[in-house]
Amino acid sequence: MFLLNNMLLTIDATMGGWELFKNSLLPMITGGIKYTIPLTLIAFTIGLALALLLAIMRLSNSSIVRAPSVVIVSAVRGTPLLVQLFIVFYGLPSLGMTIDPFPSAIIAFSINVAAYASEIIRASILSIPKGQWEAAYTIGMTRNTALRRIIIPQAARVSVPPLSNTFISLVKDTSLASLILVTELFRKAQEIAAVTYDFMLIYIEAAILYWVVCFLLSIVQQAIETRLERHVSS
């Protein structure tokens, strides 16, 4: 952190455009590696686990089990992510629960991902033909066993493309964490812009970095989808 602060101190308004661009690159990349990428990975992993739970709850035959998941998904999908982030970071302290910026961001993003991903997973499970259920029942499987061993593995392949899009969107959404003082990529851009007053150049540079990351992830997404298509066709 001390080294990164020194980097920021060496950046001033007297620098030319290209020189400022080069000197600003390392602090922003460092913020991305230290906070943006870990925040994305952790929040998506936790959110995916919660999404599976919510999806299974929504598919339950019991209204007592199904109702809470319906309310949670509706509430999260019906409110802005920024509001959710502020409730966790600024609202919970009024209830005696003070959480640091990075964990607050993880909680808010995980819940948000869970709500949206749960609908993707639920739709993927419903897309599996009923004959798969019936075949599982005929060989003596229970509903839970059929879901775990037959339905979910097939639904996972169907849900990969939309879940990949959710992951890529999450990378961009992490920029909101700058508003609760998480020093990720965009927060570093804000700090540099505040010193140099060259907002256009710095914010365009941040946009380019986000675009590069999302572009690389889209290539990985296409490779995974192609592999899955070949696996299904074979």
Rank of each mutant, 00 (worst) to 15 (best):
I219H: 06
S110V: 07
I37H: 13
V88T: 06
G32S: 08
V71T: 15
L228Y: 05
I151R: 03
S127N: 05
N5V: 01
T145Y: 09
T79F: 05
A135G: 07
P129M: 02
D198R: 06
M15P: 00
L48N: 11
E225D: 05
E19P: 00
L92V: 04
N144Q: 12
L8H: 01
L216K: 00
T142S: 15
S110W: 04
K172L: 14
A194I: 09
Q222E: 01
L50H: 08
S69V: 12
R149Q: 11
E229T: 07
G47S: 09
R122G: 06
D173W: 08
A108V: 13
V113D: 08
A43D: 13
R143W: 14
G96F: 08
I219Q: 02
N23M: 14
M7G: 00
G131I: 10
I180V: 14
I125N: 14
D12I: 01
V88Q: 08
P162F: 03
T10K: 02
T145A: 15
S169V: 04
Q222N: 11
T145D: 14
I120V: 15
I168A: 08
I29L: 15
F44K: 07
F21T: 10
A135L: 06
L9S: 01
T40K: 04
I139E: 13
P93N: 05
A43S: 15
F109N: 08
Q132S: 04
E191D: 14
P101G: 12
A155W: 13
V70E: 15
Q222K: 05
D12C: 01
I168M: 07
I204K: 00
F89G: 04
G131C: 05
N6W: 02
L209Y: 01
V195E: 08
P162E: 10
Y116E: 12
I99A: 04
S62Y: 05
G31S: 10
L54N: 04
Q132Y: 05
S69A: 14
A136I: 11
P68Q: 12
I121W: 06
E119P: 04
I106R: 09
P162C: 05
A55K: 03
V213D: 01
S159M: 12
V70F: 06
A155I: 15
S74C: 10
I152M: 14
A193M: 04
S169H: 03
A115M: 11
V70I: 15
S175T: 14
A156T: 15
P80Y: 03
I56H: 02
A75Q: 07
A207Y: 05
A135Q: 04
L209V: 05
A146R: 09
F109L: 15
T138A: 13
D12R: 01
